[in-house]
């Protein structure tokens, strides 16, 4: 790929949501979406973040769509996670959130964000 000829602008998302097992950037990514412990909302420009605990972990049913509702409420543009169920996927798509799945639980949240951002810049 010849980046000199690229006319596309690199579009960095305003806010990235990551499913996490803990409340810090050094926590490991959670492979589960609806029943993860925390969501971290990260602004890539500054790498500042906000941690929100996920009530869905305790829910009897509908944890996935409820978690998706929360992601939309917090205004994330992109979600990094392991796996998203059908219903949650539908909610996220309708709410305009891009899903990047397949992250596994051995990666730290900050590394997941960096991997995503570097892939993103390679793409364009």
């Amino acid at each position: 790929m010849n980046s000199f000829n690229s006319t596309k602008e690199i579009s960095i998302p305003g806010k990235i949501a990551v499913t996490s097992t803990g409340g810090s950037m050094d926590s490991l990514v959670s492979e589960q979406f609806g029943r993860c412990q925390y969501f971290l909302f990260i602004v890539p420009e500054t790498m500042k973040f906000e941690a929100v605990s996920n009530l869905g972990e305790q829910m009897q049913n509908g944890a996935g769509p409820k978690a998706a509702e929360l992601i939309i409420k917090y205004g994330a543009d992109v979600l990094l996670t392991g796996h998203v169920g059908d219903r949650a996927e539908e909610v996220l798509k309708r709410g305009g959130v891009k899903i990047v799945d397949g992250y596994n639980g051995t990666v730290k949240v900050k590394d997941a964000v960096n991997i995503y951002l570097s892939n993103k810049s390679k793409e364009q």
């Binding site: 492979e31 392991g82 796996h83 992250y103 596994n104 639980g105």
Partner: peptide, 8 residues
């Protein structure tokens, strides 16, 4: 996709 050692 995540790398898992097993198949289910």
């Amino acid at each position: 996709m995540p790398d898992k050692s097993y198949k289910q």
